[in-house]
Design a protein around this nucleic acid. Sequence first.
DNA 1: TTGTAGGCGTTATCAG
DNA 2: CTGATAACGCCTACAA
Lengths: 339, 339
Amino acid sequence: MTFGRRVKLADVARTAGVSPATVSRAISQPELVSEETLARVRAAAQSLGYLPDAAARALASGRSMTIGAVVPTLDSTIFARFLQSMQLALTRESYQLLVASHEMSPAAETEAVRTLLARGADGIILVGGDRPRATVDLLTASGVPTVLTWCGSPNFASVTVDNEEAGHLAAEHLLGLGHTRIGVVSGRLSFNDRQRARLAGARAAARKAGLDIPDWCVSEQDLTLAGGRSGCAALLQLDSRPTAIIGTIDLIAIGCLQEAQARGLAVPSALSVVGIDDIDMSAYITPSLTTVHIPTSRIGQTAAAMVIALIGGGGGASNVHLPIELVVRRSTAASPPRT
Amino acid sequence: MTFGRRVKLADVARTAGVSPATVSRAISQPELVSEETLARVRAAAQSLGYLPDAAARALASGRSMTIGAVVPTLDSTIFARFLQSMQLALTRESYQLLVASHEMSPAAETEAVRTLLARGADGIILVGGDRPRATVDLLTASGVPTVLTWCGSPNFASVTVDNEEAGHLAAEHLLGLGHTRIGVVSGRLSFNDRQRARLAGARAAARKAGLDIPDWCVSEQDLTLAGGRSGCAALLQLDSRPTAIIGTIDLIAIGCLQEAQARGLAVPSALSVVGIDDIDMSAYITPSLTTVHIPTSRIGQTAAAMVIALIGGGGGASNVHLPIELVVRRSTAASPPRT
DNA sequence: TTGTAGGCGTTATCAG
DNA sequence: CTGATAACGCCTACAA
C-alpha cells in the first residue's frame, strides 16, 4: 500500500536499475528499448503501482492527449450518443475527452472554449458553425485544431450533414402524401444553425410545391417532449389546423404525436407527424415515427478521427459530409379529406 | 493575432512591468496584490490574450482542479442528467469534469479510474458500490477523495438513495391495487447493485404480502426501450400472465407499456405498469407512467459538493441519503378480474 | 540501446 | 506588497 507520496518515474528507474530516461522511453516508445530492460522496467512499474503524471507529461511534451468537446447540453439523447461515440474513438487512440456544455448560451460556449484551451486540449470539437466572433478568434489565435459538427463554417474543418435537406426531405414526404397545410414545431432558432437550416429546408420544399409555411404555422419551442406537446397544441388551435406536422427533432415530433393522441386526434389518420434525427425511441413508440435519419454516432466517430488527423499534422480545413435519409414508418399517411 | 508560441506568464509580467510571481498572485490570490498592480497585470493579460497553462499549474500546485466521473454509459437519460448537474455544480467552483464510461465492464471501469488518477483528478465520483477489489485498491492507495452514488460501499463516502425501497414502493403500490401476479423486467444484475436492490425490494414487498415473484416472472433485459418491450413480451407469453409489471428503470417500463399496447392490451385496465426513476418522458407519454421518483440531479449536485468538501479536507467517509417517493400517474389501476 | 542534462510554465517559499 | 529562486515530474535532444 504505497500511500502518501506518489510513486514517480525516478522511483521506477531506481528499482529497475536504469535511468529515468529509459523508463520514460519504455513507456512511450517501447520499441526503442531492449526486451530485457523493458521487462525489468515494467515489472518495477507494476510492483510500485506507478502512474505517469499527466500534467508533468503534458508540460514536458507539449501535448496533453486531451480533446475538448463542447455541446449545447449534456441532457440530450443526441449529444449523449455523440459524446459516447467520440469517447470510444478517442480512447482507442489514448486520448481523453474533456466535455463541456453551454446550455444554449453563446457566452458560455466562449468560456468553455477558453477553459479547454487553458487545459491544453490538443484539439477541439464543437457543434454547429454559428457563434460569436470572440469564440472564433480565440480558436484561430490558439492554432488548436478544431472540428465543427452538424453544420460547418468557413476556415474550420467540419463533419456535416445537410440539415436543410433534412427539413426538405421531411416536407417533401408530406407533400407527396397530399398534405397542403403543414405545420412546423422547431427549437429556438437563435444560436442554432441546425434548427434554422431544418426549418428553411422544409419551407423551401413547400415553396417548390407552390405552397407556403407561414410564420403562424411555425411554433418555436424548447427542444423537449414538453416543447413538442405545447407546440402541437398551439398549431392544433389554429383556424385551419395543419394536417401534418414536422418536428425539427424527434423528441419534439414525439411530443407532437403524444399531444395529438391525447386530444383524440388519431395519428396518422387525422394527423401526420415527421421528425428529424431518428433516435432510438422513434422506432419503438406507437405509432412508430417517420423521420429523417441523422448518423449521430458516425458524426462523432468521424469528428474524432478528424481532429486526430489534424493534430497529426494533416492538411488544413477539410470537410466530410455524411448522408442522411428519410425513414418512413407509421406516423405519416395520406392527407385526410378536408373537413 | 498572437499566433505560434503561446503567451505565457513571463510575457504578461514583462509587459506589465512586474515579476512573474506577482502575475501569478494577481491571478490566484488577487487580494494579496495592490489595486494598481492588479489592474496593470489584468490589462496586460487581457491585451496579450493570456491563458494560464493548466498543466504547469497542476504540476506546480499539486491540484488539477479536475474531478473525474465514471458512469456506466453516457448514452442514458439518467446519467446524462447526472453528469449535467455535477458539471454545473463543479463549474461554479471552477472545477472541470472529466468523464469516462465503462459500458458495463468492470475492467473498463478500473481502467477508467486509472486514467483519471493519472490525469491527476483531485476527486473521483463513481456510480454504485459494486466493483472489483482492484479498483477499490487503486482508489484507496491513491488517497484521492472518492464519492459513490446511488449505492454506497464501506470505506467510501457516498450519496445514496434506497434502491431496495424503490422496488418495495413499486410492488407495494401494485399489491395495494389487488395485483397478485406481478412480473418484473429488470436490467442485467451482475456488476449492478442498483438493479439487484430494486429487484430484491420488489420481492421483499411481495413476500411481506404472502406472495412471491418467482424467477420465471423476472426477465433480465438491456436497459433500453427495446429491452422493456422484449421483457414484456416474454412475461405476457406466460401461462398465467402477470396483471402488473414493474420495470426497474423507467425506460424499460415504458417499453413494457408500449409492447402491451402494441399487443392490444390496454394499460392500465388490462395491465398495470410501474417504473423507477421518473425521467421526463414518463410524465408525457400516454398513459403517463406511475413510477418511483429518484432525484437524479440532486444526487449529482450533492456528490459534487461532497467531493469538493472532501478535497477541502473535510472528514472521512460521510454519507448523504436522499429520499425517494412514489409518483402515481395513469399506468396503474386495480387488478382486472381473473380471466 | 542507454544515460545526462536542461527545460516545459507555474506555484510557493523566503527574503526584501 | 513585491521579487528572486527553487521545485513540480517528465520528455527529449545530445552524447556515450
